[in-house]
Amino acid sequence: MNPAADIPLWVAVPTALLLLLGAGLALVGSLGLLRLGSFYERIHAPTLGTTLGIASVLAASMLYFSALQTRPVLHEILIGIFMVVTTPVTLMLLARAALYRDRTEGSRDVPLPSPPPQRPGTDASAPDSVIVQSGAEKGRQGL
């Protein structure tokens, strides 16, 4: 007995599209783990799945169960809230851990802890920001 038999078509089509979109984005994000070159590039890849990807799958699930049980089913929002709150935290923790490990090993591909100390009197002309391109900084000493 298939529960999907009594779902109207106007629910089934968006459910199917949202599922395919979400799963496709998750797949692309996971492929990014394979295809991108360095850790700091790879850390961008899973955000595809954790933002729009899971949002689409949750929307599909909400739509489908609301139609199946003929009442609004909203508890999927909880997973959404939870993902929104936790994903940035885990990624930031991982990025900081990776940066810390690279610095202790003296890697040249990561910027130093803070901009070089300023001599007194040069504060007024201090640049607003310092751009550090990865791999472009040669000759810098590690920690």
């Binding site: 700091y40 850390i43 961008h44 955000t47 595809l48 954790t50 933002t51 929104v84 994903t87 940035p88 990624l91 930031m92 990025a95 900081r96 940066l99």
Partner: peptide, 11 residues
């Protein structure tokens, strides 16, 4: 910043 794909707040 971190939730937007393509940018990560590192430190």
């Amino acid at each position: 910043i971190t939730a937007t794909p393509g940018t990560v707040w590192v430190e």
